[in-house]
């Protein structure tokens, strides 16, 4: 681990800024799902790379915390690696790839498959916090709609999905109602992960850097995905199991193997997949390897 560099304050942001962000977080926790504006700072990375999440993480991070960063469920993609290094360098905190060891997990696209616990905080990087944006572009109007709980428009989008595709074709950033009041955009997580937000023991914080909004789901809060009575909410299903660990109930990524149409499906949560393999679970691809090795 590199030495903490003296020209930076702990976790990069100055203490006043962190106080301001913590105040926004407290308000967000007090009003679950409500988008709290905050004075977002310039971060040493471009918008869209997780500036909102990084600011929230910096504000809640303590020296004894253990940080995990995932992007697309994986710990070793560019975005995850650079944010992990950023905090290792500016806060000198211990980092990990293990979901069970981490106290703070910053994520872009996934909620880990391993259930979270009360001692953990999940920080989401959010590109577009406003679920009504694409149907009602006026920010003044959408804020009023949130204030007056006028959410009929959200169902217009789902209606349009069904009439065009025969089913609700929204697969990510699937709108959900928090604590029976505010409708929120759960960042670009797949709808597969929506049920994990419901009654989750961990605190969930959402930071949008470009739009300068923070919102939150406190622990054990009801989160309901919107749907129709005759078209209930459903999560994605796969016919395949994970090719590496054989898991049947995880979110799978498709991996193209060659230009002959060969492909395989693997868990998107790489830590969960590695854990299962370490426990001796085997998928199709691994079994073949072992058989070859035995011969």
């Amino acid at each position: 681990m590199t030495q903490i560099q003296s020209e930076y304050n702990f976790a990069y942001l100055d203490e006043q800024t962190k106080r301001m962000i913590r105040r926004a977080i407290l308000k967000a926790v007090a009003i679950p799902g409500y988008q709290v504006p905050f004075a977002g700072r310039e971060m040493p990375m471009p918008y869209g790379w997780g500036t909102g999440g990084v600011q929230v993480t910096a504000a809640v991070l303590a020296p004894q915390d253990i940080l995990k960063v995932i992007d697309q469920g994986s710990d070793d993609t560019t975005n995850a690696v650079s944010i992990r290094q950023f905090f290792a360098k500016t806060a000198n905190v211990v980092t990990t790839e293990k979901t069970t060891e981490a106290t703070i997990i910053q994520t872009r696209h996934r909620i880990p498959e391993t259930p979270l616990n009360e001692d953990q905080i999940l920080v989401y990087q959010v590109p577009i916090p406003e679920p009504l944006r694409f149907l009602e572009p006026r920010e003044v109007e959408t804020r009023k709609m949130h204030a007056l709980e006028e959410y009929g428009l959200m169902h217009v989008k789902l209606y349009e999905d069904i009439s065009r595709h025969g089913h609700i074709a929204t697969t990510y950033a699937y709108p959900a109602k928090v604590d029976g009041r505010y409708v929120m955009d759960p960042s670009p997580i797949p709808k597969f992960d929506n049920p994990k937000m419901n009654m989750c023991p961990a605190l969930q914080l959402f930071g949008a850097g470009r739009e300068k909004r923070i919102y939150a789901i406190p622990p054990y809060t009801q989160v309901t995905s919107l749907d129709f009575e005759d078209y209930p909410f459903e999560i994605q299903k796969w016919e395949e199991n994970c090719a590496l660990c054989g898991a049947e109930d995880t979110f799978l990524d498709e991996v193209i193997l060659d230009d002959q149409g060969n492909r395989m499906f693997v868990c998107s949560d790489s830590d969960y997949c590695n854990d299962r393999q370490a426990q001796g679970h085997r998928g199709e691809a691994n079994r073949e390897d072992e058989m070859e090795a035995a011969q």
Binding site: H155, D227, F228, D230
Partner: peptide, 12 residues
């Protein structure tokens, strides 16, 4: 359908 959904109809 928008007005119907705005007044709370939820049956597609």
């Amino acid at each position: 359908g928008e007005r119907l959904m705005a007044v709370g109809q939820r049956h597609y």
